[in-house]
C-alpha cells in the first residue's frame, strides 16, 4: 500500500470514494480495501502456484493429489472466500438503503431530490418547517443522519456523492430511499451516474456539509425571500418582462414557474447550471444568452436575442439573490 500511495493521490478531493467524509462512504471505502486486500492475497497465491507449476525441476504428483488440489483450491476455497465477502457486503445494505419507506417519512431531515434532464429539483423537509424548495445543490448538517427520497421526472438518472456514500438510481415512477450521514464538513460533488441524454456529462450537484447550527440558520434563510429581491430594480423588471417567471420561481416576486430550477437564492449557490458554470455575474449572463451552447439539449431556451444590457441587469439581480 505504501508503494502505491503516490498513484492514489488523485483519489483525494471533492468527488472520491477513497477519501470518505461520511459514515456510508467509510463503509464503502472499508469494503473496497478489504476486497483489494483479499484480491491481493488470492493473486499472490495464484502466482505462487503458477511458479511452482512451471519450475524447471518439476515433481510429479499422483492423480489423487491433483484431484484434491483442484477440489480444495479450485472449488471449496473460492466458494468460502466469495461467500464471506458477499455476506460482509450484504450486511452493509440495511444501513445504506432502508427498506422501510415509512421510516423515511418521519426522518427529522428528509431531502427529496428529483432528477430532470439535466438538473436536480431539491426539496427540504425539516421537522416543524414548511418544505423549502431549491435546486442543483444539497446542503446537510454534519453528524446527522439524513434521508434522501430519490425520484425522476423523465428518464433514469443516478444520485451519487462518492465522498458521502453509495450510488442509487432515480427511476421514473418509483421512489428510492437512501440515507447518509456526513462526518466531515466541506463541499463535495455528485455527478449524475446514469446516462440520461445529450448533457448527461454536464449534470452534477454540489453537496455542502455544514455544522448543524449553520445549517439550520441557512435553511431558515432559504425559507424566506432573499433580501436581494428588492435591489437592482431594472434586473427584476427585465426578468419578469421576458417571461423567465414562466419557468422559474423567485420568492418575493410574482415569478412562480415550476418547470425550471427555483432561483430564489441562486446567488449563494456553489455552482451554476447543475455544477458546470462558475456562479458569477458573467457566468449567469453566459448561461442565459448561450444556454444551448453551454448545455446541449437543455430545456431552457437561449435568450440570445436579448440586448447585452438586459442580460447584464438580469444576471446582476440574480447574483444578488443570496
Amino acid at each position: 500500500m505504501l508503494t502505491s500511495s503516490p498513484f492514489l493521490a488523485g483519489c483525494a478531493g471533492i468527488q472520491s470514494a477513497l477519501d470518505p467524509a461520511g459514515v456510508e462512504a467509510d463503509a464503502v471505502a472499508a469494503l473496497f480495501w478489504v476486497m483489494v486486500a483479499g484480491a491481493a492475497v488470492i493473486w499472490l497465491a495464484v502466482m505462487g502456484v503458477l511458479y511452482y507449476a512451471t519450475r524447471r525441476d518439476r515433481v510429479v504428483h499422483s492423480e489423487t493429489f491433483a484431484g484434491r488440489v483442484i477440489l480444495w483450491a479450485g472449488a471449496i476455497l473460492p466458494t468460502l472466500i466469495l461467500t464471506a465477502l458477499l455476506a460482509y457486503g450484504l450486511s452493509m445494505m440495511p444501513r445504506l438503503r432502508p427498506w422501510d419507506a415509512r421510516a423515511a417519512e418521519d426522518a427529522p431531515l428528509r431531502i427529496e431530490v428529483v432528477g430532470e434532464q439535466f438538473w436536480w429539483r431539491v426539496t427540504y423537509h425539516r421537522d416543524g418547517m414548511e418544505p423549502v424548495v431549491s435546486a442543483n445543490e444539497i446542503r446537510m448538517p454534519v453528524g446527522e443522519r439524513v434521508t434522501f427520497t430519490l425520484r425522476s421526472a423523465d428518464v433514469i438518472h443516478a444520485f451519487w456523492i462518492p465522498s458521502l456514500g453509495g450510488k442509487m438510481d432515480m427511476i421514473p415512477g418509483r421512489e428510492n430511499t437512501l440515507t447518509l450521514e456526513a462526518t466531515k464538513a466541506g463541499i463535495y460533488r455528485g455527478p449524475c451516474a446514469e446516462f440520461c441524454g445529450s448533457s448527461h456529462a454536464l449534470m452534477a450537484l454540489a453537496a455542502v456539509v455544514m455544522e448543524t447550527g449553520a445549517f439550520d440558520e441557512w435553511l431558515a434563510r432559504q425559507a424566506e425571500p432573499s433580501p436581494g429581491v428588492g435591489e437592482n430594480e431594472a434586473g427584476r423588471a427585465a426578468f419578469l418582462a421576458n417571461g423567465c417567471g414562466a419557468c422559474h420561481a423567485v420568492a418575493g416576486t410574482e415569478a412562480n414557474g415550476t418547470i425550471g430550477p427555483d432561483l430564489s437564492h441562486l446567488g449563494s449557490r456553489v455552482t451554476l447550471g447543475a455544477g458546470i458554470v462558475e456562479n458569477s455575474k458573467a457566468g449567469i449572463g453566459r448561461f442565459i444568452a448561450e444556454t444551448d451552447h453551454v448545455k446541449p439539449g437543455v430545456r431552457m431556451p437561449a435568450y440570445r436575442a436579448l440586448p447585452d444590457e438586459e442580460i447584464d441587469a438580469i444576471a446582476g439581480w440574480l447574483k444578488g439573490l443570496e
Binding site: 417571461g243 414557474g257 418547470i259
Partner: peptide
C-alpha cells in the same frame, strides 16, 4: 408547458 399568460399578458412584457 409553462403558463402562457406570463409571456403573453403582462402589459410591461418584452
Amino acid at each position: 408547458v409553462p403558463a402562457c399568460v406570463t409571456c403573453h399578458d403582462r402589459p410591461d412584457r418584452n
